[in-house]
Amino acid sequence: MSDYRKPRQARAIPTFEAILEAGAQLLGEIGIERISSNLVCERAGVTPPAFYRYFDDKYALVAALADRLMERQNEVLEQWLVRQQGASLEEVVGDTIGLLRETARIGDEMPGSLWILRALRAIPRLASIRLESHAYVTGRLTDLYEKLLPDVSRAVLERRNRLAVDLGYAIDEMIRENDIDREAVFEDARPLFQAMIAYPEYPGARSA
């Protein structure tokens, strides 16, 4: 995002990280509407000029936190993809729940993750972070399933995987918004992922 700037000098990194940590904590405590740059500065122990050296406003701070969340989730995806090498279609689809669990763990480890997910859907200037992440995950999953479903066109697989990715992010948000049995949600989702990805191809799927 153009409205936040990473530090160029090593000595500035602790200040940048302190601001990010304070912002994440405050997001989790009071939400995006009540958070302000002044509150973040007070929590981080920095001055407003230090804040604005890196962030144009609180939404730029959320953008930086969102980028970090998406990057960590992408790392989990890459690790999961390595584990799928040599697996069958049924095994890969079945272990999608494992990917959901790992993605949820990343959110658990980052304070304010629920508000970050909400912001990516609700604030237009942050939408590109969500869309770029969805496109990346969709492409990587399509690369995997293209090897397992060689008779189904890539366009169809991309469409199905995009549906699956959107469902996965919706589940990650759902389990944080409600007092709900997340394992039950994961198991409810299992047949949905199987249906979206591995169902028999319909007429025209080869060329769609």
Rank of each mutant, 00 (worst) to 15 (best):
L126W: 10
V165K: 09
R118I: 03
A66I: 04
I13R: 15
E109P: 00
P203F: 11
G112K: 05
R154G: 04
E158G: 00
S133K: 08
Q9N: 15
A155Q: 09
I97Q: 07
R140Q: 12
Y136S: 03
E33L: 07
E91Q: 14
G204T: 00
W115S: 01
I97W: 04
E109V: 00
V185R: 05
W115N: 10
Q9K: 15
G139V: 02
L39Y: 03
P150Q: 10
A24K: 10
Q79M: 07
G86I: 04
A22H: 12
A170H: 03
R83T: 08
E146I: 00
E42L: 14
P48M: 11
M110T: 05
L61K: 11
I197L: 12
S113R: 03
A195D: 02
E187L: 06
V46L: 09
R121C: 06
R140N: 02
R101D: 09
D95F: 01
R140A: 07
G94E: 10
S2P: 14
E109N: 10
G98L: 06
V93Q: 06
L100S: 10
A24E: 08
R72A: 15
D151P: 02
R5C: 02
L69C: 03
A10R: 15
R11P: 11
P203W: 14
I129V: 13
T47A: 15
E78I: 03
S153E: 05
Y202I: 00
I197W: 02
D56L: 13
A164V: 04
D179A: 12
T47M: 08
E109M: 13
P124H: 06
Q79N: 14
Y54S: 12
L167N: 04
A10W: 09
G168K: 05
L77H: 08
A63W: 02
A170R: 09
W80N: 06
I19A: 11
R154K: 09
T138M: 09
L148N: 06
R72W: 06
